[in-house]
Design a protein around this nucleic acid. Structure first.
Lengths: 144, 144
DNA sequence: TTTCATCCTAAATTATGTCTAATTCATCTT
DNA sequence: AAGATGAATTAGACATAATTTAGGATGAAA
């Protein structure tokens, strides 16, 4: 998504274009795809030293509401991501790394809709051990 | 799951059977299916006034590790649930209620495994608005 | 230029973890 | 069956990280 498009989305939701918001969007566009509010703050404060954590949280909420990002919760914190396509997030229980993986099937929300619910979004979080941690033998033994 | 079976599971993982753990398990067996550590504490402290929040957290971790409960994150907190079967959790964005819904498809973790990851569990969290909130017209307008 | 959203500062809240001493439990020994 | 023993667990207080709140100051947009 280009910066102009992101700015348009903010405007569409009546969010004003402030320097702080532009800095956060710039971060997003250079980001590794998955990041936390803390990641954003640590990076943006270098170029905009007066910004505070509270502002970053506010901005991330505005940016997410505008459809520029999505978010999900894992490892006790909120993660933001730029990938708006349907996918699952794989979380490594050993190193904490998060990686996109495909979902083989559609209509995960179907039975919720069948129950009369309105579905806004579906998060799929897969927890396990990544290739690297497996090869390092870092997996705790499961004693059955 | 019966109490005797739950006790067996704790023993299998070498967790001792303490009165506090039994009180928490009793709560679980009478619970509405989804609850937080705070819910457990507020209830158990009535019958076991000396118990502390820290103990409840410890016990919930032990109980989850023993396979008596599963947990997932939503609304900024960890939720525990007794339903160990494959299912999705529907979270109402208006009232916060959580409800089980079926998942139409299997093998959600398949493509993670195809990438060489070991999959431990898959959480599916569906966010939207429940029937009750929809009928009350409590849904925020989405101005497009 | 006015107005209202947004930002800043600081402090509160919430969820959860950590530390230590005291207690309890499971098991072994009588 | 009762007591001794060491390991595991608990209570209680405090620590920390994530996030929210409140109220005044500031700046974007009409």
């Amino acid at each position: 998504m280009a910066l102009t498009e992101q700015v348009e989305k903010l405007k569409k939701y009546n969010f004003k274009i402030t320097p702080q918001r532009l800095r956060v969007i710039e971060y997003i566009n250079e980001s590794p795809g998955h990041f936390t509010a803390e990641d954003v703050y640590k990076s943006v404060v270098k170029v905009e030293p007066s910004i505070t954590v509270a502002t970053v949280y506010n901005i991330l909420r505005a940016v997410t509401m505008s459809g520029i990002l999505t978010s999900f919760e894992a490892n006790g914190t909120t993660w933001y991501e730029t990938n708006l396509e349907k996918h699952a997030n794989f979380v490594c229980l050993s190193c904490g790394k998060i990686e996109d993986v495909e979902i083989g099937c559609n209509d995960l929300g179907k039975s919720a809709e069948a129950k009369g619910f309105k579905v806004n979004n579906v998060d799929v979080i897969i927890r396990g051990y990544c290739r690297e941690c497996l090869s390092k033998g870092l997996i705790p033994e499961i004693t059955n």
